[in-house]
Amino acid sequence: MGLDFSVLPDYFGILLMGAGWTVAITVCAGILSFFGGIVFAVIALYGHWTLRLPVRGFAFLFMGTPLLLQLFLIYFGLIQIGIDLPAFVAGVIGLGLHFAVYNSELIQASILAVDKGQYEGARTLGLSRGQTLRRIVIPQAVRAVIPPMGNNMIALLKDSALVSVIGVMELTLAAQQAISRTYRPFEFYLAAAVCYYIVNLALEAGLRRLERRIAASR
């Protein structure tokens, strides 16, 4: 049985929809991982121990266990305690928190690397600790960490395929559906790979633009 790409156009719609969901889940989880990363970093560095310890335990859990297991836990496990999340939401939360933990590590290091003179400049004007952190330190720390955080976002895009296991109809699952009807795995997995690659290119282009835009403000 040779390769036959002529079946692809019939399933173009399904693949496109899958790619749409992949983009949606990546964007939503990316935003969650960004803000979650900042919140975790601030708690880890400055939080009261009653917040810091749970967050550290949580980070430990998310870094030390497979993402797949975390998704199962959030989607199937939480139902048992009465939290029944839609698959998309469970996927966004799982992916978002998982990468928030990694982003938090980057942001923590970046916050600590902000020049002492920045704190002094701000405090001298009369800003409080909290105001200095919010308006001076975190914006600078985040700018400095955009390139490595961009790499996390690209990893997030690729790992979004894992949410297919909880039934989110994203690109990988869409390809599988097409395959189950046509028995043409090579063609459809290849097509899905091309789609991932295109989204990836767009994401990288966006990141590069962002980096250029903030270059002067660093």
């Binding site: 920045q118 001298t124 600078q140 660093r218």
Partner: peptide, 16 residues
Amino acid sequence: RQNIGMVFQHFNLFPH
């Protein structure tokens, strides 16, 4: 501190 201006050797302007 609002009443006391300070100028530093290394300026300490906010780059962002």
